[in-house]
Amino acid sequence: MKGVLLVNLGSPDSTDPKDVKKYLGEFLMDERVIDVPYWFRSFLVKGIILNTRPKKSAAAYQKIWWKDGSPLIVLSERLQEKVQAKTDIPVGLAMRYGSMSLKKGMQELYDKGVRDLQLIPLYPQFAMATTETIVVLAEELQKEFFPDMKITDVPAFYKKPEYIKALSNSIKEYLADKDYDHVLFSYHGVPERHIRKSDITKSHCKPEIAGEASCCNTPSKAHEFCYKHQCFETTKNVIAELGWDKEKVSTSFQSRLGVDPWLQPYTDRTIVKKAEKEGIKKLAIVTPAFVSDCLETLEEIAMEGKHEFLEAGGEEFYTVPCINDNNEWVNVLTGWINEFNNEQLSVNN
């Protein structure tokens, strides 16, 4: 029997600092998130971060928490429900971190008789700390607990025309009645070393170059796993789909942690620069690294980013919602699922 498992990042169970600490501990101890030797990661996370950050993060979560719970969880559940309503095969939902674990999601589908699983990480662009960690954990769980389950994972879909069209239309719809001077595409940041580690050629990617480097536009096998290239390609594909002037659009990276160099330009600095140096008065921000609105979009961008922009002299600040449970996006996902289902049917026939 075939089945589908949608997988998103995850969330604390509540805004209580204890729940946030538990969640951060699992998240930050992932070797693909903080990719340093275990002893140092343990010292950094358990000895420093978890003794200082949970209260601050809990306060941030409190600002954006919905009546029904975590926005990311609620929106992911809405997406799952809409997709399930359009297909006959079981569609499950799991999170890489938190109580809605990947193992629990796989077990629920296994108990329904699913032995042929389509795994869909809800990340348009590939990264060690997103797609890779989900796929690797799913494979480990399959070997240990579900040896008779076959897993087929959906790779990064940043350039699939149907996704780009759905994303572009959702952006267009939101901005239709807005007056803006510039659009900033803000992607979640990753350390430069993650790009080097993901470079299968070991020589192509140049993550230390701020902005879009020449390597991003030079054809290479490295692009299959290069987060930086895929982010810039997403921006370019949306610009092309909407027919925008590329001079009025830029790309940046948010949410850096620690002192190591991360992908640049940084979103917070870019927001200030747009207002102070470039005279942009009305700024719109799109966050295409996220399928569902979450702490990084609702608090870091919509609240902190807006404050920084207005303080720097800006006048209007628009945060474009993520694609969330947009009906066109639901149809795109359903199409991929039905394609998977039909391929299996043709093989069996």
Rank of each mutant, 00 (worst) to 15 (best):
D30K: 03
Q118W: 05
Y23F: 03
V136A: 14
L72K: 04
L283G: 05
W329Q: 11
R32W: 12
A85L: 12
F290K: 06
R41S: 09
P147W: 15
K202G: 09
R78A: 11
L24S: 01
Y61M: 07
D177Q: 07
S203H: 11
Y23R: 07
M95E: 05
F253K: 09
A210P: 02
I195Y: 13
L310W: 05
E173A: 15
V330T: 12
T235F: 03
G211M: 04
V238C: 12
R193D: 14
L117I: 05
W244T: 02
Q254I: 13
R196A: 15
V347N: 14
A127M: 12
A85T: 14
D111H: 09
F232L: 01
N342W: 06
K55L: 04
Q80H: 08
E315S: 09
F232I: 00
R41T: 11
G279N: 03
K178S: 13
M29A: 00
A284Q: 05
K55A: 03
Y187F: 15
D35S: 12
E140L: 12
Q125L: 08
N51S: 09
L310Q: 05
Q107N: 13
S42D: 07
V286G: 07
H188S: 12
D16N: 10
K197P: 06
S14C: 04
A302K: 06
D293C: 04
F317M: 03
E299T: 03
S101T: 10
P71K: 00
K63W: 05
S255H: 06
L50H: 13
D111L: 13
V347A: 15
R32I: 07
K21T: 03
V7C: 06
I134Y: 13
D88K: 15
E132F: 15
K246E: 15
K206Y: 00
E192K: 13
N169D: 11
P121E: 08
M1D: 10
L50W: 08
D16K: 07
S99K: 14
R256T: 06
E296G: 01
T235Q: 15
G243Y: 07
I195S: 09
